[in-house]
Design a protein around this nucleic acid. Structure first.
Lengths: 89, 89
DNA sequence: ATAATGTTTAGAAATTTATCTAAATATTTC
DNA sequence: GAAATATTTAGATAAATTTCTAAACATTAT
């Protein structure tokens, strides 16, 4: 849902997570090293990103790797484009 | 600032306001007729949209007309495009 | 100048969100 | 299977946001 996506993107820490993941998949722990917050808080942010389908996760042994999923961003793009196009139609 | 823009867009009522304004400028009162919320609450939302430069306002006599300003949305576009492009570079 | 209408501001209450600590779960290694 | 490591869940607190009522401000018309 668009609401979930935009809500997920509205937090600076979550956007920073996505920026990190642009470089490729990372485990929760690796991501955590770039932040001050506790693992529990990070996990919470990751779950929001996951619910918004902005990231996917894959378990590999002890680690869980997170990967960015840009396809959902295209929905926001479309929504924004509709403003740039439709205005005053 | 990107943060202001995304934050402003993260509320469904504010997005609905922008959808309304796509059709052309409207006064605060006209906008309010499309919502349940009080005028005070609407005014609050409008001020957030204004701070984010997503709308501009123009006083005409007793009324204040609000107009959508799509140029800021292009900043979000660029931000999103940077994900679609840079990934795994 | 007073009344009527449109909008905003101030301050408080209600809701949501971010964050923490502590405990729980899962996997690997010894 | 116990210890060590990685991550999540539960429950609590703190901070931010949405919303309201009441009052204030501004403009027009009487």
């Amino acid at each position: 849902m668009l609401q979930d996506t935009i809500k997920a993107l509205s937090d600076p820490n979550r956007r920073k997570i996505l920026e990190l993941l642009k470089g490729g998949p990372m485990s929760a722990g690796e991501i955590g090293r770039h932040f001050e917050m506790t693992g529990a808080t990070l996990s919470h942010h990751l779950s929001i990103l996951k619910k918004a389908q902005l990231v996917s996760d894959e378990k590999k042994g002890t680690y869980i790797y997170y990967e960015i999923n840009t396809s959902v961003m295209e929905d926001i793009m479309s929504w924004i484009v509709s403003f740039l196009e439709d205005k005053n139609e």
